[in-house]
Nucleic acid binder design. Structure first.
Length: 869
RNA sequence: GGGCGAGUGGUGGAAUCGGUAUACACGACGGACUUAAAAUCCGUUGCCCGCAAGGGAUUGAGGGUUCGAGUCCCUCCUCGCCUACCA
């Protein structure tokens, strides 16, 4: 006997089991059907379990997946675990337990929680980045990069985090701290594996244009890549054979260069320092090295610097300009050296003012006083050139004779506009052999090694002579060795150095002794290509087959948080392009459309002392929030969910109390998917009530199908509302406006509740409409309507437009733009008739009295506006 | 400092192209059911004036374009996120 009440626990359990046992959502290549690949950013399975933010994106993609299946698409909708990472390693260090143990436990918990939400994943494609069967192929891709010369070792200034005992990527450091934990980070020189992402800078930038991604994310990637056009200019150090190159975006201001600055780390800085300045320079370099990135970022960082005592020759006019060293010049960008033009660069201006260096105007703009502030805008070139070489002071000419290819060709750009001057001077520099037009990128090569245990080992060996070789593919994966102690070694070596038997190996080709790499790959590695593995997740011979890749790729829709705007998304695009060049993938870009869901926030309650209270500890009295027990007033605010704020909502509780369908529906109903919005208990209750009302339309008190559902109800109010809903829900899903789609379904349920008869056909169509949103209830109702098979592949209902057209319509009548009445007219009434009816409307007449109509505006089917005087 | 986004009832939000602002939901209030409460159902509900008919103001502030502006343009304010010496 089917139960009468909406028992979400029973229903959800039943259908989740059904889907799993019948592998309802298993997807296989089927060239006869169009494919749709909809992907979630797979989670790091933390020990805290799922929070309500995860299901927001997952529900959105699940709705799309279920909808597309019903529309006849062959849908690929997979899930997996980005399971390497620091928390598991820290746990291992503390307990001595292998990180895989806790990792697998967490994965199981996540899986249980995700399955409890009724998400339609093809679990046969589940992957785990820490599984050797998976990371075998991560290692293989690394070798593809290595063999193409895109992986190299370099002594590089790195972000060393003493608390973690490892280096971090630039992207993982913000304000001198590790973004995840806030531990301070300092600079060190270390030999590291680097990936040459800069070789792809131009393509990573260009191909953004074709992507259907949020503009904000594209902008962030463009800025991260930071392309800037300019010129390399060579300077000689006066009185020594030394030379250095600077990069500038403003070669047009070369005549205004009054000094140069080398980064403290620049190799020449120490070398060119004169005897008199040496002590000061050495002290400055040392201080700069010690200064943490944190200090360098200080808000009111006053510019500092030291004169080296040396002078450079300005290549355009032979002037001697002092060379300083200062930490406002970054060693990692360009050449770590600049020419300073204080008149036209705010940073140089600030520095010049502080140290009394000359400021020469070379771009003139009326009203701009370059002595007071740098002028960075447009203008006309002044003080920039010579009619002939004779104009140049003889002493300067002598210096120029040495460096110019063509000593008779003096530069002149006076009177030109900025863009024209840039072109002219760049061309002149080239003929003189003093520089070239170049493009620079802010993007740096990707620091790819970590001094950790819980990551992919590098598939490389180093022979005694220093030769680095890739391990043959047949010998992959290089599996992590078992350790008893996961701490770095006493002398600062990564934990893998403890596995001496593992480190000491032999070259399988020559039998020579060799050593394995003790660094591991960063967490990004596994997530760089997981979307490709999903295409062919159980392939033991290849990372993926060409057949699977060409059928499923690219990802049609990728949904995740905006926090991965640059890192993961840029790295993935980079790997994908390398794989494209190597012929392993058929598309230039992996993710056609990207969508960022907003954050789910929550109310938190705090007393005057700053102490937080759980929502159930407070209540509202006369509009003021107070602590229930003490009556002490508290403030309520909307904040990010966090344990310390006592405002975390646990999805397990929601699923247990109100059901997965309510949880899903509520997260979609809260507001637009891409916006941040606060969770409220009343809100979930509200959608739960909607589901109960929907249930009551279908199921009578005795548990049988509700008698109001009849074979033919004729033209009924619910039918009309249903077809409106079909139309709106269909376009809303396509546009990912799930909140409005749900309100349309609510309108139908309200109407159907009121109605005494409901066409069986309409009842069925509504169930199909509801299915992507509340799949458990929909399946249950479908079964109660007499079907024995899942509705997952039933065709999506179609809207009958003829039902939406009305015989009569209401036309709004405005006088001078203000609404004064409504007239009901036949839908095909001619304009004249409508205008006449409008003017005849009593209230409209009152507003026309004593006035003359000067203009009549008629918007067909909408309104009439009468302009009077 | 720079970039992006957002500001609409008591609350979350809706309004496809410039065309009836406030759909849908929450909350609140009133009623039914109940010994009572919860749950459920029905009704009312943006603000001001008015018994009503109706009128007035209203989408962060101010200005503009237009027959007509939440929507387009300019100036400003507030909040959120991202970013920060990149030559």
């Amino acid at each position: 006997m089917p139960s009468a009440k909406y028992n979400h626990q029973e229903i959800e359990q039943k259908w989740q089991t059904y889907w799993l046992e019948n592998k309802t959502f298993k997807s296989e290549i089927d060239p006869s059907r169009p494919k749709y690949y909809v992907l979630d950013m797979f989670p790091y399975p933390s020990g805290d379990g799922l929070h309500v933010g995860h299901p927001e994106g997952y529900t959105a993609t699940d709705i799309l997946a279920r909808y597309k299946r019903m529309c006849g698409f062959n849908v690929l909708h997979p899930m997996g675990w980005d399971a390497f990472g620091l928390p598991a390693e820290r746990h291992a260090v503390r307990t001595g337990e292998h990180p895989a143990v806790i990792t697998n436990k967490n994965c199981e918990n996540f899986k249980r929680q995700i399955q409890a939400l009724g998400l339609s994943y093809d679990w046969d494609r589940e992957i785990n980045t820490t599984d050797p069967k998976y990371y075998k192929w991560t290692q293989w891709i690394f070798q593809v990069l290595f063999e193409r010369g895109l992986a190299y070792q370099a002594e590089a200034p790195v972000n060393w985090c003493p608390a973690l005992g490892t280096v971090l990527a630039n992207e993982e450091v913000k304000d001198g701290k590790y973004v995840e934990t806030g531990d301070p980070v300092e600079r060190r020189m270390m030999k590291q594996w680097m990936l040459k992402i800069t070789a792809y800078a131009e393509r990573l930038l260009e191909d953004l244009d074709e992507l259907d991604w949020p503009e904000g994310i594209k902008t962030m990637q463009r800025e991260w890549i930071g392309r800037s056009e300019g010129a390399d200019v060579n300077f000689t150090v006066d009185g020594s054979g030394e030379q250095f190159t600077v990069f500038t975006t403003r070669p047009d201001t070369l005549f205004g260069a009054t000094y140069c600055v080398l980064a403290p780390e620049h190799p020449l800085t120490r070398r060119i320092a004169t005897a008199g300045q040496r002590a000061a320079v050495d002290a400055y370099i040392e201080a700069a090295a010690k200064r943490s990135a944190q200090d360098r970022m200080k808000e009111d960082r006053e510019k500092t610097g030291v004169f080296t005592g040396a002078y450079a020759v300005n290549p355009v006019n032979g002037a001697l300009i002092p060379i300083w060293t200062a930490d406002y010049v970054l060693a990692e960008y360009g050449y770590g050296a600049i020419m300073a033009v204080p008149a036209h660069d705010t940073r140089d201006h600030e520095f010049a003012r502080k140290f009394g260096l000359p400021i020469i105007e070379v771009i003139h703009s009326d009203g701009a006083d370059v002595q007071a502030a740098a002028w960075v805008g447009d203008g006309t070139l002044v003080n920039s050139g010579f009619a002939s070489v004779e104009e140049i002071a003889s002493e300067q000419r002598a210096r120029l004779a040495v460096i110019w290819n063509d000593p008779e060709n003096a530069p002149t750009i006076n009177g030109l506009s900025v863009p024209e001057a840039k072109r002219r001077i760049a061309a002149w520099l080239e003929t003189q052999g003093l520089g070239t037009g170049t493009v620079n990128y802010r993007l740096r090569d990707w620091l790819f090694s970590r001094q950790r245990y819980w990551g992919e080992p590098f598939p490389l060996i180093t022979l005694d002579d220093g030769t680095v070789k890739a391990v043959p593919v047949k010998d992959l994966p290089i599996v992590l060795p078992e350790l008893t102690e996961y701490r770095p070694t006493a002398d600062g070596q990564p934990p893998l150095a403890r596995a001496t038997e593992w480190v000491d190996t032999t070259d399988p080709e020559t039998g020579q002794p060799a050593k394995r790499e003790t660094n591991t790959m960063p967490q990004w590695a596994g997530s760089c290509w997981y979307y490709l593995r999903f295409c062919d997740a159980r392939n033991d011979h290849q990372a993926w087959s060409q057949e699977a890749e060409s059928y499923w790729m690219p990802v049609d829709l990728y949904v995740g948080g905006a926090e991965h705007a640059v890192l993961h998304l840029l790295y993935s695009r980079f790997w994908h392009k390398v794989l494209y060049d190597a012929g392993f993938v058929s598309t230039k870009e992996p993710f056609t459309k990207l969508f960022n869901q907003g954050m789910i926030l929550a109310y938190s309650y705090q007393d005057a002392a700053g102490k937080y209270y759980y929502p159930n500890q407070v209540e509202q009295r006369d509009g003021q929030w107070v602590v229930k027990q003490t009556g002490a007033p508290v403030t309520s605010q909307i904040e990010k969910m966090s344990k310390s704020r006592y405002n975390v909502v646990n999805p397990d509780d929601v699923v247990r109390d109100l059901g997965a369908d309510s949880m899903r529906l509520y997260e979609m109903f809260m507001g637009p998917l891409d916006r941040d919005k606060p969770w409220t208990e009343e809100g979930v209750q509200g959608v739960h009530r909607f589901l109960r009302r929907a249930w009551a339309v279908f199921v009578a008190e005795d548990g049988a199908l509700h008698p109001k559902i009849v074979e033919t109800g004729g033209e009924s109010a619910p039918k009309k509302v249903l077809h409106h809903a079909i139309k709106a829900v269909t376009t809303d899903i396509d546009e990912m406006s799930f909140n409005t789609a749900i309100s349309r379904m609510m309108e139908f349920v309200n109407e159907a509740t009121r109605a005494s008869k409901l066409d069986r056909e309409d009842a069925e169509k509504f169930v199909l409409l509801l299915a992507p949103f509340a799949p458990h209830m929909a399946e249950e109702l479908w079964e109660r309507l007499g079907y024995t098979k899942t509705l997952a592949y039933e065709p999506w209902p179609e809207c009958d437009e003829s039902l939406l057209t009305e015989d009569t319509i209401d036309i709004a009548v405005q006088v001078l733009g203000k609404l004064r009445g409504l007239v009901r007219v036949p839908v095909d009434a001619p304009k004249e008739q409508i205008l006449a009816a409008a003017k005849a409307e009593p209230n409209v007449q009152r507003h026309l009295e004593g006035k003359t109509i000067v203009k009549e505006i008629y918007v067909p089917g909408k309104l009439v506006n009468l302009v009077v005087r």
